[in-house]
């Protein structure tokens, strides 16, 4: 951790601070928000009254408060989607890479199938079958995201399988499960950290796209993607209502992408420069 912080470049620090900032906003949303983000009032429609720092949207909801609470939803959905994807990806990737043989072949064909579907359309299809809601979006994004993780973890496990210390442990009579959990998994951790961080950016983007299309969580909930979608109908009168949530999405995605990039350069120098 110490060496890690020392190796962080200036840009890396900026992105790190950016991530902390978004987390702070999400955690302290009730304190930072000036109004109830869900309270509508037709009289305040698209107005700029006092007490509403960024004015009101087409339903008279406080734009600023919705942005603040939007950080919460983005982070919650992004993290839970990626965690779920990571667990499936880890199980499949480690099993395939360590076992090799027909199991590897079989699991990788399943991964190929999931990679082949157009991700946004698959997420849409899943959320249509399950009905809207936070759980649905998380599930849909996990379904879309796990295969890529499984593939990356599998190739790492495949390489580690023939490492000398693994063979040594095997000769000493360690069980397969023990080898995977105590030798292979810990050595995959840097890689996992990197793909997890970068994956958050992807998940946030996908969630925003789903919300933008009206297929994400309940539209009355304050999501940035949903805010862009409803503001676009009033874009000619109030273009800034598209800009605020849009910039929030871009900011969150940029900080996670840059930080993930930085992590990769430090933890996994062999893949430097590749995404």
């Amino acid at each position: 951790m110490k060496t890690f912080l020392r190796n962080l470049t200036f840009v890396g620090w900026l992105s790190f601070i950016g991530i902390i900032l978004v987390f702070m906003v999400a955690i302290f949303a009730p304190i930072l928000a000036t109004n109830d983000p869900m309270e509508t009032d037709p009289l305040r429609r698209l107005s700029q009254e006092e007490g509403f720092p960024l004015g009101c949207d087409q339903l008279g909801q406080c734009v600023y408060s919705r942005l603040i609470y939007g950080a919460r939803l983005s982070l919650i959905i992004g993290f839970s989607a990626r965690l779920s994807a990571l667990f499936i990806g880890l199980a499949v990737g480690l099993a395939a890479g360590y076992a090799g043989g027909w199991l590897d072949w079989f699991l990788m064909r399943i991964v190929d199938m999931f990679l082949a579907f157009p991700s946004l359309l698959l997420a849409i299809a899943v959320s249509m079958v399950m009905g809207s809601g936070i759980k649905t979006v998380v599930f849909a994004l996990a379904i879309v995201g796990w295969a890529e993780m499984a593939r990356i973890i599998r190739s790492a496990a495949l390489e580690l399988r023939s490492a000398e210390y693994v063979i040594a442990a095997r000769t000493l009579g360690a069980s397969h499960l023990r080898i995977v959990l105590t030798h292979i998994l810990p050595n995959c951790l840097p890689l996992i950290t990197v793909i997890f961080t970068m994956g958050i950016a992807t998940a946030v983007l996908s969630e925003a796209s789903l919300s933008f299309l009206g297929l994400g969580v309940d539209p009355s909930l304050p999501t940035w993607g949903g805010m862009v979608a409803s503001a676009k109908d009033y874009m000619l009168r109030r273009p800034e209502l598209v800009a605020y949530p849009g910039l929030c999405i871009a900011f969150l995605v940029i900080v996670f992408n840059v930080f993930g990039d930085e992590l990769r350069d430090i933890l996994d120098p062999s893949r430097k420069g590749n995404w």
Partner: peptide, 22 residues
């Protein structure tokens, strides 16, 4: 390049629409 990757398509689409078409 980082910005291009991070900005959602719907946002850049709306921005281009607003700037270049409107």
């Amino acid at each position: 390049s980082v910005t291009g990757i991070s900005i959602p398509v719907f946002l850049s689409g709306l921005v281009f629409l607003y700037v270049f078409a409107v």
